[in-house]
Design a protein around this nucleic acid. Structure first.
Length: 601
RNA sequence: UGUCCGAUGGUGUAAUGGUAGCACAAGGCCCUUUGAAGGCCUUUGUCAUGGUUCGAAUCCAUGUCGGACAACCA
């Protein structure tokens, strides 16, 4: 009855308006091959919103036999860092592994676009290489694409625009530029001669002018209703060192100029981005058209970004959480960063199932975090090894069980997967059970342990609570119980029904471990609704650190393994773990129908 | 204000002129050596008003509401 494939969600996307379009283009034979790209700016860590974009772009590549390039969109030296380049690659590889890593377009280290002639025109192109295509993995190393690798070509395209009288150097101060564009007023420098523009642009490049004193602007239509067509900026002066190009340049292209051209140079067919770029699309098309390029042009399509409830998904705000010490770092398990999600114990399969399942539309919406949590539970339920662990222990003494006696009981590793096998769990006279599993004055419908009541200890005996021992302050310190010694699996009374079944750990055999109980970072579904500061709705209980009692087999816990502490939730080993002190993260709790029932009662 | 875009149960998403479906959530029942998982069942929806049509969630018009953009960021 075991189904090894059960833990692999299909991760097949339903149709959406972008896939429909791509399918139509494929049917028309519009492109020899579908080519998408995932172009993060290396100015922060990737988050759950990027996961959606990755799944969309790589999903299309795998569904239509295409390729998706990973590209660093690094045109602003002031904000970008090599650390982020590293983390982005790690996160992308983690999310793609076993799913679309064979569609990941990279390039040989150091490669730049090659000159070629197409239809009698000079052209540049940089084709992708797949890992599977490398002949000699030892000598050839691949790296992502970098927009900054295209600075020479982009600069040449700028010269072309100037020569076509479609771009000019503008000396207006930044504030004036804004004001002129807002009021549809032409720049006084708009009618400079081509020669003068060429000269000034060359001097900008040569470093003759300080930052902010001059820019290169497209000459389109300063009165256009779309602001992005009002002679937008193409190049600005930035005397800054760039993480990838060093000090080679002091002028840097703007996003709008660099992005469409990067897409073109890589032969991208479908350039998929989020809604905020929708109004830029006319400029994207204008630049490519103005250059009179010989190959097929890429086209931009926009979709609504992912906004999960109870999360903040904005690089700037994530940076604030990290820098202000609200969380411990970019990979804090409470953060919706991909590295935080990974450290929390979510598998790439679960994240993909969620990111694909939310669909692709142009409707701005908030996705209920319950959908995310459900994807995590569904995945972990299938793969997690069951273990017994007590988070908040209370001692139980089995008075009719011999003090020196120990027995090894059979426990099933995963009821969802027979092939996961069984293990032995030690039982003895003194045990720990969960403090919440005993109530001296039980609420209605409570079927855990109560004075005089019976429960089953999972894989062991049915016990009856005879006596409640308290300290001077009245706190329950110990429960004295008798076991039905015939009620064990295989015993004469094994079929006896009791309402409750509890998890437990043998006190003498228990392993102490630090357990980090993570919860949502915010108390409000929309932390920033109504202009509210998200820091005012931080969840004070987003992390609770406790020392728990674990069954001894957990001493051999594997970093890659996923565990379900029975009746509690899903857990995984944290990177802070040592041999002496294991550390477990709670990925997510089990669904708990009892809390709901208890609240109702 | 301008430009562009959008609107299907509580939430998210299908239906591409022909039976409004799926998932999550919620509720009920069953099962249970995990109050998990699983099984069965239920509730709730096409923004409004007109028009085209045998037939409209879908096409058209108007309105309403919502969003994105208006950085020498991406």
């Amino acid at each position: 009855m075991s189904n090894p494939d059960a833990s692999a969600p299909p991760a097949v996307a339903p149709s959406d308006f972008i896939r429909d379009l791509v399918a139509q283009h494929v049917a028309e034979g519009r492109h020899p091959r579908i080519h998408t790209r995932f172009p993060p700016e290396p100015n922060g860590y990737l988050h759950i919103g990027h996961a959606k974009s990755i799944c969309l772009n790589f999903g299309i590549a795998r569904e239509f036999g295409g390729i998706c390039n990973l590209r660093m969109d690094d045109t602003n030296p002031a904000k970008e860092e090599a650390e982020y380049v590293e983390s982005i690659q790690a996160d992308v590889n983690w999310l793609l592994a076993g799913w679309a890593d064979d569609k990941l377009g990279l390039k040989p280290k150091g490669a730049t676009p090659a000159a070629q002639t197409v239809n009698g025109k000079s052209d540049c192109h940089l084709a992708p290489v797949l890992k599977s295509e490398i002949r000699n993995p030892k000598s050839e190393i691949l790296e992502p694409f970098y927009a900054s690798d295209y600075f020479p070509q982009i600069h040449a395209y700028a010269l072309t625009l100037i020569e076509k009288d479609k771009a000019f150097v503008c000396d207006l101060a930044p504030d004036d530029t804004d004001e002129y564009r807002r009021t549809a007023k032409e720049s006084p420098f708009r009618d400079r001669s081509i020669a003068e523009n060429l000269d000034l642009f060359a001097r900008m490049k040569a470093g003759e002018f300080p930052d902010g004193t001059r820019v290169l602007r497209a000459k389109i239509d300063v009165a256009a209703p779309n602001i992005w067509l009002r002679d937008p900026l193409l190049y600005r002066i930035r005397h800054a060192s760039h993480h990838h190009t060093g000090d080679q340049w002091c002028i840097y292209p703007m996003y709008d100029f660099a992005h469409c051209l990067s897409d073109y140079l890589e032969g991208i067919t479908h350039s998929i981005c989020t809604l905020e770029f929708e109004v830029h699309r006319p400029l994207y098309d204008w630049i490519l058209t103005a250059l009179d390029l010989p190959r097929a042009l890429p086209h931009q399509y926009e979709f609504a970004k992912l906004i999960p409830s109870y999360m903040i998904v904005s690089k700037r705000k994530l940076i604030a959480l990290v820098n202000d010490g609200v969380v411990t770092g970019w990979d804090d398990p409470r953060l919706p960063t991909i590295s935080g999600i990974r450290r929390r114990g979510v598998t790439p399969e679960a994240l993909r199932a969620f990111a694909i399942g939310v669909g692709v539309t142009k409707f701005v919406s908030v996705t209920d975090i319950a959908v995310y949590e459900h994807a995590i539970r569904e995945d972990l339920n299938n793969r997690a090894l069951r273990r017994l662990a007590v988070l908040h222990p209370i001692k139980v003494v089995i008075t009719n069980y011999h003090a020196g006696q120990t027995e090894e009981l059979d426990a099933i590793n995963n009821p969802q997967d027979e092939t996961a096998g069984k293990r032995k769990v030690p039982f003895s006279r003194e045990l720990f059970i969960e403090r919440d599993d005993f109530a001296e004055v039980p609420p209605p419908k409570y079927f855990r342990l109560k004075p005089g009541g019976e429960v089953r200890l999972k894989y062991a005996y049915i016990i009856k609570c005879d006596e409640v021992v308290k300290d001077a302050a009245g706190n329950v310190t110990e429960l004295r119980c008798t076991a039905d010694l015939d009620s064990k699996t295989g015993g004469a009374n094994s079929a006896r029904k009791v309402k409750g079944t509890l998890h437990w750990v043998s006190a003498a055999h228990a392993v102490d471990a630090e357990v980090r109980l993570y919860d949502r970072l915010f108390t409000e579904a929309e932390p920033e609704a109504d202009g509210r500061e998200f820091k005012t709705v931080l969840n004070p209980r987003s992390l609770e650190v406790i020392t728990a009692k674990l069954e001894p087999s957990l001493k051999e816990a594997a970093p890659e393994a996923r565990y379900q502490f029975e009746r509690l939730g899903y857990f995984c080993l944290d990177k802070d773990s040592t041999l002496e002190k294991p550390v477990f993260n709670r990925t997510i709790s089990l669904k708990d129908a009892w809390v709901k029932a208890a609240v109702k009662a």
